[in-house]
């Protein structure tokens, strides 16, 4: 792993992850290491176990066996809501935003762990409350600009175009200042123009944090990731630079053999 050595710290370390649903083996011995600051891709045909792996990495699902450490913390021992406090941000493939809230309210909800004030503090406009509000306003402006949502701030999330909703999902995740960002099929369902916008967005937010992308779309992986893991039928096939990965014979056969989009 030549590129990983350039970074001294490990952001994600998964060791021999196995996941079984009844008799079905979804993951069979996947190991991976993601260095801090890296943009790492996980790809594979439909049903390969990508989403299962994603859920295990960010602590939503527990593996049958194996160990996952994210930023030095054992994810298996952590309640899902605690992951955010340890610097983990996530976007989901579906139900990505707070649908009934405006864009700005979405950002407010996303800021949850950045607030410390109590209800009493809110009533009497305590120093903490005012400082936090100011910090939120600044942060929200930055994130809105970064994600290109300045003009949408007062619109309800439900009525936004699909691509804009996906950007909002990333904006919500950014509000908690995550050190590591997990993106689950972020470009699924996007058109060419939206995908291009999305790629430049991730390029803009990647510096200073680790990004793990589970993705179907090769363009995204090729454009963004330093390295990618290929999963086929729950097995790790290869971890390499995206350009190399697609020359691997098993990857080619898996992709050509599978009836994909």
């Amino acid at each position: 792993m030549p590129r990983a050595e350039a970074f001294p710290h490990i952001a994600v370390r998964a060791t021999d992850i196995r996941k079984r649903y009844g008799g079905v083996v979804a993951l069979n011995g996947v190991s991976l290491t993601v260095a801090e600051g890296e943009v790492f891709g996980i790809i594979g045909p439909n049903g390969a176990g990508k989403s299962t792996l994603f859920d295990i990495l960010c602590g939503i699902t527990r593996p049958t066996s194996g160990r996952v450490e994210v930023l030095g913390q054992d994810v298996g021992q952590m309640s899902p809501h605690l992951a955010a406090r340890h610097g983990v941000g996530r976007t989901f493939q579906r139900t990505a935003v707070f649908g009934e809230g405006t864009v700005r309210e979405n950002l407010l909800y996303g800021r949850h762990i950045g607030f410390r004030h109590s209800v009493i503090g809110r009533i009497f406009q305590s120093e903490t409350y005012r400082t936090e509000r100011r910090a939120f306003d600044e942060k929200a402006e930055d994130v809105l600009t970064l994600c290109g949502l300045q003009d949408e701030r007062d619109r309800t999330a439900n009525v936004l175009a699909y691509g804009v909703q996906r950007r909002l999902a990333i904006a919500v995740a950014l509000m908690s200042d995550p050190k590591i960002l997990f993106l689950d099929e972020p470009a699924a369902g996007m058109n060419g123009r939206e995908t291009a916008d999305f790629i430049s967005l991730v390029e803009a937010i990647a510096p200073g944090r680790t990004v793990v992308i589970v993705e179907h779309d090769m363009t995204v992986i090729k454009a963004l990731c330093g390295r990618a893991l290929v999963v086929v039928d729950g097995r790790p096939v290869t971890i390499d630079a995206p350009g190399q990965v697609f020359r691997h014979p098993e990857v080619i056969s898996a992709y050509l053999g599978a009836d994909d989009e």
Partner: peptide, 18 residues
């Protein structure tokens, strides 16, 4: 805010630390 975010989207609320 936490309550409202839970009502709108439990899973996302949990993932932002609620």
């Amino acid at each position: 805010g936490a309550i409202e975010s839970i009502r709108q989207n439990r899973h996302l609320a949990q993932s932002v630390g609620v």
